[in-house]
Design a protein around this nucleic acid. Sequence first.
RNA 1: GGUGGGUUCGUAUAACGGCUAGUACUCAAGAUUUUCAUUCUUGCAAUAGGAGUUCGAUUCUCCUACCCACUACCA
Length: 505
Amino acid sequence: MKTRVRFAPSPTGPLHMGGVRTALYNYLYAKRRGGDFILRIEDTDSHRFVPGAEQYIIESLRWCGIVPDEGVGIGGPHAPYRQSERREIYRQYAEQLVASGHAYYAFDSAESLEQARAQAEASGQTFIYNSATRSAMCNSLTLSAEETERLLRETDTWTIRFKMPLGRTVQMDDLIRGHVEINSDTLDDKVLWKRADSLPTYHLANIVDDHLMEITEVIRGEEWLPSLPLHYLLYEAFGWQDSMPRFAHLPLLLKPVGNGKLSKRDGDKMGFPVFPLRWVSPTGEVSRGYREDGYFPEAFVNMLALLGWNPGTEQELFSMEELVEAFSLEKVSKSGAKFNPEKAKWFNREYLRGKDDAELAEAFLPLLEAQGVRADKAFVVKVVALIKERATFVSDFWDIAWYLFKAPTEYDPKDAAKFWKDENPARVQELAAFVRDFDGAFERDVIGPALEEYIRSREWPMGKVMNALRLALTGSGSGLGIADVAALIGKEEFLARVDRCCKYA
RNA sequence: GGUGGGUUCGUAUAACGGCUAGUACUCAAGAUUUUCAUUCUUGCAAUAGGAGUUCGAUUCUCCUACCCACUACCA
């Protein structure tokens, strides 16, 4: 049987990086087994629907290189893939369950449920709508057939609840957690059909769609583990247990410090993105994204892949193809993974170094333009080659190498005090004179050694003079090698900068 | 409160029940370099606690502690 997995987010806001990881693991699992990855949108909660969220999800997956084989935005043999467009499908299944005695109509008002809960709480107990209490509630099991008929006909305020069996030990198997069992008496009669918007709840829609779409493995977040027994029982009630998918519940992504799962707040507080892409909420609130923060999608994906999974080898850098090749659910860990923003940066640094100079130059060009600099592409390629080992993001380039594009107009006071003193200004001027008369090629490996040789011949202290010269050329006492700077800015600019610095002082 | 899940250096993780508990990030020190960064080398640092099974337990069992999730007509 062909492997078919799905990622089924709810469009209630931007896709969290934990969600991206779930999508990624699904994708990797499918591709490893030559199967299909399906994107299904679970928008059965009309109240929490957020405009733009679905497009955001699609765009995020695209940016990460997680390409669905079927689903919203792509289509496929099981279309539509948006649950709100499948509402007619679910109704019959919900009623089938009522007909077979696995579910029933419930007419309890929100107030009466509230009251039941309050009452239970007052006596120190928790109200559970199940075999222990359902006989005292208002539903098709307690009402006469006629009354039920009447209510169904005359009102539209009914729900369908699953009739949780009494005294069952549900035996479950999870691909990551192994065997899990639970007594059904601790579970409640979950609502399968909501009166609120005439739609199924997650549980019903999810099971029906996974069945209809021939899903073979359900890989989802750990927060779903508590509802796994209900899902098992639902498959059983439908008589679908033979084709029931296997389940894998992924560990949660936790906040970098302290306890609890990673939330949007943590990102804001600690200065890292929680979302793949920048998101502007309908109320205008902005959340930063990995893409806009300058992360390469490959780095983001690589980092995410290793948060909760390991290849069993010491390899850390993986292309998507390599991830597909190496991925297996057996190597997914059980415990939650604290996200480490520093490691995320490390991954980006590694990927930045691996990029070729022309590509990086291309990415740098717009930033130069924003700084009002017009630069020749070939020149930028040379600059990038020199600085990429010093950067984490392309956006670091300007701060690292701005002085290769324009002359400094100010000089770091501390460095100036340290280096622009004693004989040094005079020495730098003498060096400039030497450079003026220098008729060798103005290249790194020619002018560099020439300068060194001159300094040595004059028996000046190498470090002090070089730093004074650096100050003149770059405005700072630290940075790129003098030979590189000199070669890149050229003889004329070299002389002009020394001249300007001397006058400035 | 109830139910379920989890627990190896600060973090991510490795270790068929068997070497001195490995690797990466971070941090520190040293080397290299004209400075900074890079690079290289070295170092710091962990099996939550307690019983049990076993010749031997990070690994299996139980108890305790702690953490997390769920406990909606949300997903």
